[in-house]
């Protein structure tokens, strides 16, 4: 087991499996709580497998390109490679779209934010070192990018006649 975990691909594969397991669990619980939400079906399981495969392909591309001479490609985030892989595959076959969409979107987000919350546990003490001024600035920085992009998009969509 320890030896196996030294192989990073096996480790990544297991972590993604954990993530998918939690997603499946979330979708199941969500359906218990609200019977109108998406039920777990055979297609959901197929979707989870597809998500695992696409994630692994993305990791593989990202790892292989780490030795690329082009900085931009070398530093392109693995998250981006996974999205691109999935997009290309979904454009090729509609089956992938059907399978993935049988996985409830909101059920994917809850486990991620659970881990995000745990991961910042040791950062809470760092807050002491940040000034209240930056906290106020942060509100305007976050609002700024969101309002800025929304305004540009809104104007663009109007010009495009939508």
């Amino acid at each position: 087991m320890q030896n196996m975990l030294r192989n990073s691909y096996i480790k990544y594969g297991l972590i993604i499996l954990l993530s998918l397991g939690l997603i499946l669990f979330t979708q199941f619980i969500k359906h218990l709580k609200n019977p109108d939400s998406m039920a777990v079906t055979g297609m959901t399981l197929a979707g989870l497998i597809v998500l695992w495969v696409f994630s692994m392909i993305g990791i593989l591309i990202s790892e292989k390109l780490k030795s690329s001479p082009v900085t931009f490609i070398r530093e392109f985030p693995v998250l981006g490679w996974v999205s691109i892989t999935s997009l290309v595959m979904c454009l090729i076959s509609d089956f992938f779209v059907q399978a993935i969409q049988a996985v409830d979107f909101l059920s994917i987000t809850t486990p991620i934010l659970t881990f995000a919350g745990i991961s910042v546990a040791n950062r809470l003490v760092d807050l002491k070192n940040t000034s209240w001024k930056v906290a106020i600035v942060a509100v305007f920085v976050f609002s700024g990018t969101y309002i800025g992009s929304t305004l540009m998009a809104q104007i663009g969509l109007m010009l495009a006649g939508r």
């Binding site: 990544y12 972590i15 993604i16 954990l18 993530s19 998918l20 997603i23 989870l48 597809v50 998500l51 695992w52 696409f54 994630s55 993305g58 990791i59 693995v78 998250l79 981006g80 996974v82 999205s83 691109i84 892989t85 999935s86 997009l87 290309v88 595959m89 979904c90 454009l91 992938f96 779209v97 993935i100 969409q101 996985v103 979107f105 994917i108 987000t109 486990p111 991620i112 881990f115």
Partner: peptide, 15 residues
């Protein structure tokens, strides 16, 4: 890595 399935899901939303 826990987020990767979400990123993979986006392909099916964009396609």
């Amino acid at each position: 890595f826990i987020m990767l399935p979400l990123m993979a899901r986006y392909g099916a939303d964009v396609a």
